[in-house]
Nucleic acid binder design. Sequence first.
DNA 1: GCAATTTTTGATCGGTTAATTAAATTTTAA
DNA 2: TTAAAATTTAATTAACCGATCAAAAATTGC
Lengths: 198, 198
Amino acid sequence: MTKEKTFISEARREQILKATIDVLNDIGYVKLSLAKIAKQAKISTGLISYHFADKEELIQHTLNYLIGAQLEFIEERVKKEADIYQQLMAYIKATLAYQDEHVENNVALIEIIFNARTEDNIPYYKLNEEEEDPLYLRLENILAEGQRKKVFSSDFQPKATAILINGAASESMLLQSESFDIENYQQELIRVVAKIVK
Amino acid sequence: MTKEKTFISEARREQILKATIDVLNDIGYVKLSLAKIAKQAKISTGLISYHFADKEELIQHTLNYLIGAQLEFIEERVKKEADIYQQLMAYIKATLAYQDEHVENNVALIEIIFNARTEDNIPYYKLNEEEEDPLYLRLENILAEGQRKKVFSSDFQPKATAILINGAASESMLLQSESFDIENYQQELIRVVAKIVK
DNA sequence: GCAATTTTTGATCGGTTAATTAAATTTTAA
DNA sequence: TTAAAATTTAATTAACCGATCAAAAATTGC
């Protein structure tokens, strides 16, 4: 109820949020300030405070947006596949595709996760994500379901394998150079995962 | 030549460096200040400025130390093995062991890599490490040498596979919880890598 | 069209921080 | 003993930041 905002208010909040992502890409979390965000969005600093309780709430919303966008992107492609094996491949391809196509979002996500902290001063990257992170769970479920349906070998552990695949997939997030051939890496990763699940 | 420091100076620099690692673990890079480091080391802030030109030089030295320590730890264990296959396994085990046994070093490393920036304002995590990072190169060389010696299958690409293995291995760095069984993860990772190199 | 409400501005307040430096003191080494 | 090196203390400079708020402007509902 408290969150029923007007149309214009929602639009403004989204504008500020997008500006935050831009500024994070430009100068990073350490130098992030409301003044910089305001300048990027071409509004006054006071307006940010009007729409967000404080800087932390703004960052929290930006984080939620970024996580949601990635999840939606991947889920969208996974659910198009009926076959469980194709779902697994879609998951991997979508993960890499998102990193390639939405670099700004990934950079902003990294900046927040590795810098922002909870009220208890615990950095987000130390929070146990594998227990709650919907992306982790999605992958783990695909792997487990494949085993249940006897499509995959029962020769691997869904949880450990999910961590492994996610680790291998997100590594490419950090390697956006000319020399890194993401197309080729995707093929290799898919070949390896195919081997694992047999 | 300019770096020829006295014994006491070297000891002090190392003390400051260790204090920096401690403070990074306690409060993170964002809140890091010379005052906090001085307090941790139980010295005056001025003394830090006396031994390090500026904050950036201190961070740079801390980063070099952390990278060197990890490399040394892993290399130490790899070179004990004569067999190339055992070298590969030693590399993976050592990578995970280091993350488990030197959590403070890894946290400090993460804090610096994901926060500090070069003079050109480029974050360290965006620098193309796979081209220069000695750890990457070491793994890639093991994989390539194994193929050359026909011990490994020629069915994978050393570079892509090195990225994959490093990604899967470093993922566990972020998952230090009670629910995460690093022992079990190591076994799974080793099984998978064994499958890849056949 | 007018009054109430929402949105926006922009200046200001109180606080933090880094880096530097000068001067005084202590420690070290030869 | 003494000169150089190491260390403390404390003051300075100068920048910046997040939050606040009163007032202005824009929008909405009636």
